[in-house]
Every structure is written in C-alpha cells, then in structure tokens.
Write a protein that binds this DNA or RNA. Structure first.
Lengths: 138, 138
DNA sequence: TGCTTGACTTAGACGTTGTCCATTGTAGGG
DNA sequence: CCCTACAATGGACAACGTCTAAGTCAAGCA
C-alpha cells in the first residue's frame, strides 16, 4: 500500500506523519471504519494526532477518489478504502456488519430513460439489507 | 389522506393533535423531508409541538412501516411517505434534489448465492447519483 | 546545511441531528 | 364525568462533524 502513499505524493501532497498514519489505518484491514474508529486507531500509532486532522484527511482522500464514503449506517459515515474495484454493500440490520458484494448485471442499465428526469446519471450505490448468520442464530 | 389516519386508528393508536399534524405534513407534498423540516412545518399548524414528539412519531411510523427512512444525504435522515409502492431514489450530487424512480428488473435476484455469505437478504436499496437538469445548466 | 514560506496540524468551541427523561397533559374507556 | 395509561413537553445530553486562530513543519532553494 505504499502504492497509496506514492499516488498521494504524485498528486503533490505534502507527506506528513499524520497522513501516513491515516493511510496505514485504512490499509490495515478490510473493515469499513467510521471516522472516529480511524481516529482511535491512528492515536495508537501517533498519540498527538487530532480529530480534525483525521476528518480533513479522510475528506481529502474521498474528494480525490482514493476512498469511498458509505452511509449504510444511520449514524456515522464509514470509509471504504477499496475504491478502485467498484462494489456494493450487504448490511446486517441487527449488528451492523458490512460485507462487500458484487451483484451481476449492470444496474445503471436498469434505469429506463423515462425514469431519469433529465438527470445525467453517473453512478449507483446498492445496499442489500438482511440478517447475518450470527444474528440469525441468536 | 385520512387513509393514513384510518390505518393508524385501526392499529390502536391514540389519535392526538400532534400525530395528526405530523401525518398531514407527510401527506402534504411529495418531497422527502428531514425530521427538522417536518417539525418546522408542523409548528406552523400547531405551534406548541415539540421536536421530541416529531422524532417519536416519525420513529413510530417507520417501525410500523407506514413511512420509509432514506439516508441519501450525508446529513439528516429523510422520511418518505410513499412506503407502499416500493421504489428507489435518484439524487443530484450538487443540489441534493431527490426523485423517486422505478428501475426495471429485480435487483435482489442479481446477488448470487456465493455473494450472500450466509445472510438472509430481505431488501435492497438503490441510490442513483448524478446531476439534475437545473444544476447541469449552471 | 539552514532559511523561508505556505500548507498542515492542533485543541477546543461550536453547530447540527438525534435521544432521553422527568414532568405535565389528555384521549378514550368505564 | 373521572381515571388511568399513554402521549407530549422541553431541556439536558450525546454523537458526529465543522470551523478557527494560532502554532508547526515539509520541502524547495540558496
């Protein structure tokens, strides 16, 4: 994932310890973390890092398209580092667990022109909802 | 839409002025309002209504399935009174305008078993994103 | 290497959205 | 008409996010 750091440097980003740490956290595992979770993990590596910096950095990563914002949750936004392979989400309504999924077909094609109201449609986000195996047991 | 009021009464709801007003606001037009917008409109009809009551009432309407919660927006939840005809949403990324749309096909069928991870999938929510004609002009 | 500069970071106040709780009010049955 | 359980009130609280003023530092350059 020095990939990501490389790409950022290529964009003229100033490389700071804080930004490096945020990038590392996002790369760490495949969970979709909330901003505060990212902050919590960043703090373990760099105790002085502030919340505002994490929010700023995440926001910048989103605007340049390196990270996706998903709002499956009714509370906080979550950040999805897997921005380069398009995918959708499957959410457990009980515990909030999220998995990445890849439906077949092209949902963009499923929206007829008569249903576009003159919009230029560029993207679609699908959120499947259900109950995960764990919660189904309980 | 005394329809809605009828159905609520049928469910054993105690009918109060506040609940009636909230139902009227939801029925008023087809926009997807935020909770605070609902409150703002309710206040014009019943000045003493409190924010907590609006939130409670909306929450109850959602749990009994008369109203849908949509979170296309990164900020507040919006409430969609059109709960009885399933539909999806088309959102303008610039101005936040929302339209109801009806894609063809059954997106639930587009998720292969191998992509379900043991979940019991019951629902899918699709959010198309793009730019509305108005914002495209500007 | 050491300076300079503007971008970056910080801490904490602030804003918005939403929830909770103790108190007060009231719908609807008897 | 009165009771009583359920609903409404309002104000404190909590979670999430944004903003600002001041300090700090990465990176280019002499």
């Amino acid at each position: 994932m020095s990939d990501l750091l490389e790409r950022l440097r290529g964009r003229g980003w100033r490389m700071t310890a804080q930004r490096r740490v945020v990038a590392e956290v996002l790369d760490g595992d495949h969970v979709h973390l909330t901003a505060d979770e990212v902050h919590a993990r960043a703090v373990t590596k760099l105790p002085e890092i502030s919340r505002a910096t994490v929010y700023n950095t995440l926001g910048e990563l989103v605007t340049i398209g390196e990270v996706l914002e998903v709002s499956t949750d009714k509370r906080a936004k979550r950040y999805d580092p897997n921005a380069h392979q398009p995918h959708h989400h499957l959410v457990c309504g009980q515990c909030g667990a999220i998995r990445d999924v890849h439906p077949v077909g092209n949902p963009l094609a499923d929206l007829p022109d008569t249903e576009r109201f003159g919009f230029t449609v560029s993207d679609v986000e699908m959120t499947y909802r259900g109950v995960c195996p764990n919660c189904a047991k309980a």
